[in-house]
Design a binder for these strands. Structure first.
Lengths: 273, 273
DNA sequence: GAACGGCACTTGTTCAGACAAGTTCATCAA
DNA sequence: TTGATGAACTTGTCTGAACAAGTGCCGTTC
């Protein structure tokens, strides 16, 4: 009867079970490539019916944690590379997760007004105030990326009280109660302009890997629009997909996918929560 | 009894059902935001038990196609950008899914021997035979990408009997019983070399968006290693992530992530199929 | 007209059983 | 030694039933 899982919670059994199984995998009790106990065994072990065990296993299966065929007990799958939210959104968090040292040199921080193009991307009025930050980012002291961020005024104002050379802007905003909820990233290539070239120490026109990012706060409003340009020899993006699990990365033809063609639909869907 | 789905196939009922439901959504019969018919209705309509209908719906739910709470019929969800396996792996499939016309001009197809670097990537012996294909890819007649593929001999040999200008290589291989199971994609930027420049009609040194791909067949052996270079104005890659669901895309520092650092573990896991 | 309660309906959870289909392994025969 | 056979095991599929829990609506009551 679910010996190891407290029954105080009102969570359904299959959820507690899948949580328990996930733990066993992450803690190495069930190791990669090894077969799981049979369904019958899990039933008696936890005092539940087979349907419930199967429901829990289905959850793990849909996450790609286990795999198997009929007739054989399922095995713990090769972990699919995936990056937690904070690590993917923040350069500093990313570096820390790699046990490497992030660095930054702020080149410019300025109040500006949004041009037509930027305003459309950020869904604000053209001419609305924004705060632009231009920073060079380093990994273990080596220049690796030029970051051009545009913050809405509310968040940007807080940056003038903050030493942008000292660390993560998102970390600072979080400490002020401004939380991120989701991001949209468009990856393409671009030639280095004069600024990129000077900061990164490469010839103008060199190929750079660009990530254009829209960062949303909780509630759906856009917090920041960024243009990050990486030296391609020093960083890139990796995705894996399988026949079972489609890619969460999408290859799209242009025009610019950061624009918002179906704004009405999105509004409607977001209000439906 | 599944009136609309041919019962000739040996697919299980719940799979045919979920396929049917997916169709109804993609064809607009069940539109975004609208409620689905109740489970009971779907049961009588298709002559199956509720468990089977729920199994089919669970499949859609895990794909994010529908969402709902207890007590209310599930509704068709806002489509999350995600790409099915075939669409992400194959240029031709991708173009078709966009209702655009794929095209290709084969520039070269040749038997070669694998150099040390390529052999390491493809996990074959240096000097082993491979078949190299150089193709220009077009979307609606416009050049958009240069594709350099290296196939293992077993698959590559089949390409000499195939008009590589006529369409999808993966489609051809599939018809020969060679099935893909997963892919690994590394995205970075690179300057156009003389060949890229000539085929794409841009100056040498222009920035191109590069996708290096490893394609695995069922069983875990590597089928193909490819270097695709896109014109960045015409195509790019998009990913969305939220606090709840981490990104399946990973930003990594170099060196080359296509190499196989933990080969022993992977070998073991793959042989277990 | 507004608030309330109850009914019908919905999905979520859990169980028990049956059969199909694939895997493993011991046994037996050639 | 080798190969075939079959039993025992596994997971996959499907059914039917029951109850819990949430939603929406209608009629009653204040």
């Amino acid at each position: 009867m679910l010996k190891y899982v407290p029954s105080i919670t009102r969570e359904p059994i299959h959820q507690r079970l899948s949580c328990l199984f996930r733990q066993r995998i992450s803690q190495g009790e069930w190791t990669e490539g090894r077969a799981l106990p049979s369904e019958a065994q899990l039933c008696t072990e936890n005092g539940v019916s087979r349907g419930t065990v199967r429901q829990a296993l289905a959850s793990l299966r849909s996450e790609g944690l286990i795999a198997g065929k009929r007739g054989k007990p399922p095995v713990v799958a090769r972990p699919v590379p995936s990056q937690p939210f904070a690590t993917f959104m923040s350069f500093s968090e990313w570096a820390h997760s790699l046990e490497r040292v992030p660095g930054q040199r702020t080149w410019e921080i300025a109040r500006r007004t949004a041009g037509v193009e930027l305003a459309a991307k950020m869904r604000i009025e053209p001419g609305a105030p924004v705060v632009q930050v231009l920073r060079l980012r380093l990994l273990d002291g080596t220049p690796i990326m030029v970051e051009r961020s545009n913050f809405i005024a509310e968040a940007g104002d807080a940056l003038f009280d903050f030493d942008t050379d000292s660390g993560s802007i998102f970390g600072h905003l979080s400490s002020l109660g401004i939380e991120l909820s989701r991001g949209k990233h468009v990856i393409d290539a671009v030639g280095a302009d004069d600024t990129d070239a000077r900061l990164l120490g490469v010839p103008a026109g060199s190929s750079l890997l660009r990530e254009c990012r829209l960062t949303y706060r909780a509630g759906g409003r856009i917090l920041e629009c960024s243009d990050d340009r990486y030296l391609p020899r020093l960083a890139n993006f990796v995705i894996e997909n399988t026949r079972e699990s489609g890619a969460a990365l999408v290859r799209v033809p242009c025009p610019d996918p950061l624009c918002h063609p179906n704004e009405n639909n999105q509004r409607k869907a977001e209000n439906n929560d």
